[in-house]
Design a binder for these strands. Structure first.
Lengths: 330, 330
DNA sequence: CTCCCCTCAGGGAGCGCTCCCTCAACTCTC
DNA sequence: GAGAGTTGAGGGAGCGCTCCCTGAGGGGAG
């Protein structure tokens, strides 16, 4: 059963292809009676325009690619916030009448496939999530002349972005701990190849430096296990530490358990603050104080920026502010 | 800067369009020297075939839609497993050389848009996630003559599916509690409009009935808050209950806190078993015993089934078995 | 040596749509 | 009432590709 074409609809309605096309595309210069007879035929035949044919001539696809560039055990797509981000993007595109092609680039080969796909004219623009500082994809995509917006700062200079205020968030966390009277505040970092990890670390460093305190840095990689491991090391280095700022919630959760096992009470002996405010942060005992990253808002803003870019608008970067959510752990 | 076309490549290589097309599509009947000269030209010009033009004539798009049909506060896309499922699907499609268009259908309007899109010939097949029993979308999509695979059983009879063994999983949970010597075993259900909630409840019921015990049913809706509320009611109804099987982990986590507040020790006084084995299940105190749903495997299986269907293969439903993961809460 | 067959490159139609251009039919102005 | 202007329908080219068909050329068999 073949789908009806414009031609068929035109024949049925007794008008020309052009008129049907005009009606379908909602052009103003169509007489009401022609519009009615065409709509009638469209309904009767269940006509839906063929996308490929339309794309071919208009050069628009109404489709945007969301490219997540990340190693297989990567932090992005494993992130508890991943689904929130994807949903926010999806909703925003839906309301703009656009479609979303999701591509996870987990290897050089798939990165190549992404490039090919983008070059194949399948999409009108790209929303890029590539946190790794050395990722070659941002630059590669920027070279194609297609609108690209990054979900964070990238090494490619000329890619517009919407980023979290990671440094400001870290500052918020550390100030909060200082205000609570903590004096020996350690941090557990994310993997330092990632911009956001470095920024959060920098925020921690700067805030401590302002008050003349000594930084204590444990290295993590955003996983729960790495948070636990880093906590053990930090405790061994300084058994007297009285606060930890973890660069994400998963690591904070990992450290909670280690602190418990080491006989420290949270928050009495050691205060803990995480980052991201994932849902699990409120399930822990004690519930975790965290920096809420407005990821959904960030996603929405990124989509807006991209759509604006596609319409030929300006490409001003956006920085999203964070918010401290105080719970039991501090 | 316009992208080069087949024509341009042909001119550069000094051969015909047809030959270039043959080389691009890897046909065997091409002389090596022609292949070389074409590949050379392709490389020099950075030629990538235009997708729309190709689709238009081949009627293939190498693109599959993943449609998640769910109300705005729906359970599916809020589910912690959502991202795992999406990633598994994405990987599987990537390795099959296909693309993924993700569509969230959250309203009647967007459901209509989905139908239109599917009818527009943009995709080769549809992977449908629609848990709601009354959802009209499965039937609507089944009417289009396009391969459709559902991620669970649907009300549309003729849609092939890959489903979890929900009943078997519930049975596993309840048997486990019985073996631990529990005698008053309550359950907290998911929203009963969902197939899977009903199946999990039925599994609970059947297993208890087999041993002549009385069922105690609290109604939830898969959210943590609803789990807490149901737990309060169950405790009020029967302060002596000694075990709870929650139809998902979020509700189990909600009930843990209520039990703690009510002065019950877990697992000494009341054992708790969840369902899904989300990551947060291992963060709780005590860590949660749960039924592990092999969601990623299910996703992979669904993709396989769909690809097989597209190739004209058979459409035999698949049921995925579950596994009991025993932790501290039981 | 001739004829036939087979291999493989080129030509060209056509996929379904948009959009430009033409032209018919009115309306308005003087 | 005639000419100019305006409105809106129809015709047809062409987007970039695939794929069928044609025909050139070479090899093998008789």
């Amino acid at each position: 059963m073949k789908r009806p074409t414009l031609q068929v609809v035109a024949a049925r309605a007794g008008v020309s292809k052009s008129s049907v096309s005009r009606v379908i595309n909602g052009e103003a210069t169509v007489a009401p009676e022609i519009r009615d007879v065409v709509m009638q035929a469209v309904r009767e035949l269940g006509y839906v325009p063929n996308g490929a044919a339309r794309n071919l001539v208009t050069r628009r696809t109404d489709t945007l690619a969301v490219v997540v560039s990340d190693p297989p055990q990567g932090v992005v797509s494993d992130d508890p916030l991943f689904s929130a981000v994807v949903r926010a993007i999806s909703r925003e595109l839906e309301s703009a009448g656009k479609r979303l092609v999701l591509m996870l680039a987990e290897s050089d080969q798939s990165r190549f496939r992404v490039e090919q796909y983008i070059a194949g004219g399948h999409v009108d623009g790209v929303l890029l999530v590539a946190l790794h500082g050395t990722d070659p994809l941002p630059a590669a995509l920027a070279r194609q002349d297609l609108p690209v917006v990054s979900f964070n700062r990238t090494s490619a200079q000329d890619v517009p972005y919407v980023a979290l205020d990671n440094m400001g968030g870290a500052e918020l966390a550390v100030r909060h701990l200082l205000e609570r009277g903590r004096r020996r505040i350690a941090t557990i970092t994310g993997p330092l190849e990632l911009h956001e990890s470095r920024e959060r670390l920098a925020g921690y460093r700067r805030t401590l430096q302002d008050t003349g305190r000594r930084p204590m840095v444990g290295l993590g990689d955003f996983t729960r296990a790495s948070g636990a491991q880093a906590m053990r090391e930090l405790l061994a280095d300084d058994p007297e530490l009285d606060a930890v700022f973890a660069a994400n919630d998963l690591m904070a959760i990992g450290s909670l358990r280690v602190l418990h096992q080491a006989g420290r009470r949270v928050p009495e002996d050691v205060a803990v603050v995480g980052f991201d405010d994932i849902e699990a942060a409120s399930y822990t005992t004690p519930a975790l104080t965290s920096i809420r990253s407005p990821m959904a808002d960030q996603a929405t803003a990124a989509v807006h920026l991209l759509l604006q870019l596609i319409d030929g608008g300006p490409a001003d970067p956006v920085i999203m502010p964070n918010q401290l959510v105080i719970r039991e752990s501090s």
